[in-house]
Amino acid sequence: MKKNWIIIAVFLLLAVLHQDLWNWNNPALVWGFIPIGLFYHACYSIVAAGFWAFVVKFAWPTKLEEWAEGNDEL
């Protein structure tokens, strides 16, 4: 149960971090070719994948599969 709350908290934190107001008017280029506002969100996609990898590893609904096969209670 505690694990679920951690996942919800990280999800909400990621939703907040999506609103990168500090990059809004920043024209800087990372590595001389990618605007920082775009670079941040590309990194965000990688972090989102990492977050979901964590969720899949630690909060996978194993019982659901057994239930789907009609073998167990949900």
Binding site: L14, H18, P35, G37, L38, H41, A42, Y44, S45, A48
Partner: peptide
Amino acid sequence: GIGTYGLMASSSGLIHAA
């Protein structure tokens, strides 16, 4: 401009997977 990625792509990475 670049806002397109945050609007449609990075948000989808989080929400679609959810």
